[in-house]
Design a protein around this nucleic acid. Sequence first.
DNA 1: AATTAGCACTCGACAAGGAAGAGTGCTAAT
DNA 2: ATTAGCACTCTTCCTTGTCGAGTGCTAATT
Lengths: 357, 357
Amino acid sequence: MSESDSVKQIAPQDPPLTPRQREVLRILVEEYVATATPVASGTLQRISDLGVSSATLRNELAVLEELGYLEQPHTSAGRVPSLRGYRYFVEQLMGQQDLPAPERRMIMHQFHQIRLNLDQWMELTAAVLAQTSQAAALVTPPHANRAQFKHLELISTHDALCLMILVLQDGSVHQEMLTVTPELDQETLSAASGQLNALLVGLTVDEINDPNRAALQGLTGWKRQVLKRVVSLMDAAEKTAVDQIYRDGLMNIFSQPEFQDASRSLQVVEMMERQQLLQRILQRALDTSGVQIIIGGEGPFDELYDVSLVLSSYGIPNRASGVLGVLGPTRMHYGRAISAVRYVAQMLDSLVKDVYG
Amino acid sequence: MSESDSVKQIAPQDPPLTPRQREVLRILVEEYVATATPVASGTLQRISDLGVSSATLRNELAVLEELGYLEQPHTSAGRVPSLRGYRYFVEQLMGQQDLPAPERRMIMHQFHQIRLNLDQWMELTAAVLAQTSQAAALVTPPHANRAQFKHLELISTHDALCLMILVLQDGSVHQEMLTVTPELDQETLSAASGQLNALLVGLTVDEINDPNRAALQGLTGWKRQVLKRVVSLMDAAEKTAVDQIYRDGLMNIFSQPEFQDASRSLQVVEMMERQQLLQRILQRALDTSGVQIIIGGEGPFDELYDVSLVLSSYGIPNRASGVLGVLGPTRMHYGRAISAVRYVAQMLDSLVKDVYG
DNA sequence: AATTAGCACTCGACAAGGAAGAGTGCTAAT
DNA sequence: ATTAGCACTCTTCCTTGTCGAGTGCTAATT
């Protein structure tokens, strides 16, 4: 009781909707999504084949508004779905739909054409999502939540500088420039990296720091410095669950009529640029399975007031998993977005399983 | 003659401006940049200390408009600088200004605090530029225009897959997954990469393809495949003069009053997302030295109709050079933008010279 | 009891009209 | 060469009125 007072949820104590009410709500949401204008009882009668008059529909609309599924921008405008209405629509009325086969084929085709290059995967994924869902796409690369050493390479570049390349088990490549006090030639560096590789392969941060590993504890001088940097890079890799965020199709949002108003679009641009916020959102999605839908900033993120997110994780949990999804206006074509996200997530899923198996 | 007819340039046949006209133009541009509203003769009299009446200023304004330096949105509005007016302003009236010392110190400080990591450099650069110039920032990483082999690494990941990491002389790191038909263990791969490293170090694409190099021509089987991929990656690296574009501060543009209108901001978002267009623009800037200013889409890019760009290349030409700059409304604080771009370019210049010697 | 026709009422969108004010261009005087 | 003065132009803003869309309610109908 107390909970449903603060945040109206679809709760058992509400009377279940009659089949006709459900139908009315469904059609109304679809119509509103398509036209972006409040839906009136007359329109509803015209486009639905319920065989009732507009007056009846008006009564039904009044009930649905009473229950919190609809809102009226002002008297004598049509009705608009509320957040709760969208939620009900998505959960109960929409039905599972798949991407049309030709579209699926096209996406599949694109994924099979590219080289095996993570960066390209991510860009392609974002592009495909944006294109298919007609909204803004967000994608993060696969990531393990425990960093495990795989390979180290030291490459002398110039003077006392060397380039350190660190590869982790999840395939992520990290690079950093190091200054080494004595000038070391490539051979010395290669020998050192060979030695370190043998000692470190397969280890986690904790294992590297284990005081019982005499061989590692015994390292001194510049090699010790290198080891320190390795650990700190691995540490950083573990901490940031979401490293890079690939974006695409921001434009798709701004061409929507509800963002004609500049202040609203400013909000969205701001959001898309706020790395931290996006990271928090995507990280949450990472820990959940299946397609998740955040409508109009339900949940802990009030910053997203008038946008919705459709997110899904992909990959192998904890070993190599990432998030992808789309961001669009609350009035979004959820069916399309969800099926696009689901299909592309599957796509990446199988790619990741092929590679990290 | 014929040229100055098609595109109005500041050309010798125009009478030189009198000192007072120059002063009027200067103050008008500054005022307009600050307020974003057309500047009237009365306002001009108030804020300038020319000691003349508004009527005189009206006459001067009429002359400046006649000459094409000013425009009138409509009768009985004040004057606004034309593209030509802006151009004259930045070239002749603005004077060289430097970033204030505290700001310089702050930037310097930030640059000295970070780790030696290219990615972080670029992000920091974009952030600093955006912040300082209050416009959108664009930065590309340093890049050599002849790809020269430095180091190759093959890392077995799983089944018949291996990760190939290619480092070029300019410090750029390229990675790609390879499928090798026979399953090879890490030792075989390491041996192969050692062999290839010895053969390839320092070579360009042309040299690698040289039919006289018996050692390379003699390679067969999967090693030949690897070599092929190396060449193709190097090829790609050479072709794309501008690989990644780091962006920041897009928001700064949309909060400007001239972008209240949604269709205009849509144009800008579109532009910022069109990789190809940006690449062409930045590439042009790469081949030029010093700070370049493109005002309101002068030159070959009509897509930029109502934005201006302030760009500068940095680094060592042909060996490791990139571009950075800011994009803002035509009514931009050019002084600030130019000094920010100049200073940050210097900053990166010295960093690049430290690293690439 | 559910549905519907009918009707009064509300509210936004839009156009027309008009006053206010900002700013110019021109002219004649200095 | 400069300037005061003034008529003229155009935008902005407010008011007013009309139109139409759409609702909510009531009473009649099934």
